[in-house]
Design a protein around this nucleic acid. Structure first.
Lengths: 197, 197
DNA sequence: AAATTTTCTCTAACACAGTTAGCATAATTG
DNA sequence: CAATTATGCTAACTGTGTTAGAGAAAATTT
């Protein structure tokens, strides 16, 4: 993913090379260390070339963020198709969220402007994020048919609980053991889902 | 807090001037806009002077962060002294946390490396943060005398729930109405406290 | 009072950041 | 072959954190 040959490369190829390099640097050195010049060096181009693919660093980060939300959305839809029991669905969705944040922390960080990642473009306006929200709201609605406002409140609660634990576990990863955090997360999310009926 | 006269100023005076200016800029333009030169301009000094008071920007941010945790700790202690009922205590502490994040979002952001604020120094090692944790753990212990591990787990849960809602409400402040978020927060925290007994 | 030292503050510079303008070369088209 | 388009570069601008070293002013000593 790092040292890409320069010779045979189409436009889409270069674009994904930029994204991949940005993610690789962020994973290795943190988002603060991600610079246009460093990306350009890695893909063996000069800095201005990057601007042929992304209008600004902000737009690049936004693209990576949207990619993250789209990936998450796909995973959620997979879960929805896999299980029929609404409770099982929501619980498994919760686990997917945890695993995603564990396996690709740099993506999770840019999605929520965490730990030095900073994208000016408001995340609320992202269609991908809306789509994720819709899937979860539908799942909640599927076993608790309530008013739109009530569903929104429950979704907000679920989201906050999950995101709170994930971002806190990231913050304390040196002090608190991952296994324990994960156990608490599982228990809490299971309890949350149970509490819905 | 912005245009400070230069004439009569002691060392402590200048130090707090730097901190105050940094906070003011962060509040007005976000943490990403906080630069050493801008701070120096505001206090009518040249940039290197700032380094006489703080070894680096990182240290400056860490100081502001610790200040935030110390302030929060004081508020928590005030609540503990004010109420005898443990449930009331924890609930009021939760509300203090919300109000703090509402009234001084820039401080809350630097405390958790949110929204462009980025301090390299690990927050876990902060004594002030530990002190805050101790107070909350004690409060939880005061009406649920369990093992250290259980208390730690409950504290983690409480913290995650509170922090999750606060940071999410910050993220969605344009979409979701503050009043509704606050209502959900109050309900959730009350339910959490109730659920402890 | 003169000389010396210490204190205070500044300018200049370095490497790096995001970003843009303009030029050179290569590929394609007529 | 000539003209045009595409491609990628260098150089530059402003702004960032940070450091070195110069210079003035104040305090101290002789």
């Amino acid at each position: 993913m790092e040292t890409i040959e320069r010779k045979p490369r189409s436009r889409e190829n270069a674009r994904s090379g930029i994204i991949g390099t940005a993610k690789a640097i962020a994973r290795r050195e943190g988002w603060q260390a991600v610079s246009i010049r460093k990306i350009a060096d890695a893909i063996e181009y000069s800095a201005p070339i990057v601007y042929e693919y992304f209008d600004s660093k902000d737009v690049l980060l936004d693209e990576i963020r949207s990619e993250g939300f789209r990936h998450l959305h796909q995973e959620y839809e997979r879960i929805v198709k896999l299980y029929r029991d609404p409770e099982k669905r929501l619980y498994e969705i919760s686990l997917v969220q945890w695993d995603f944040a564990r396996q690709q922390p740099e993506i999770y960080q840019v999605m929520y402007n965490l730990n030095g990642a900073y994208c000016t473009i408001p995340v609320c306006e992202s269609d991908a994020m809306q789509a994720v929200g819709d899937t979860v709201r539908q799942t909640i609605f599927s076993f608790i048919p309530k008013s739109k406002e009530s569903i929104q409140k429950l979704y907000f609660e679920w989201w906050a609980t999950s995101h709170g634990m994930i971002s806190l576990a990231m913050l304390l990863k040196d002090e608190q053991h991952v296994e324990q955090s994960e156990q608490v997360y599982r228990d809490t999310m299971r309890r949350f889902v149970r509490g819905l009926r």
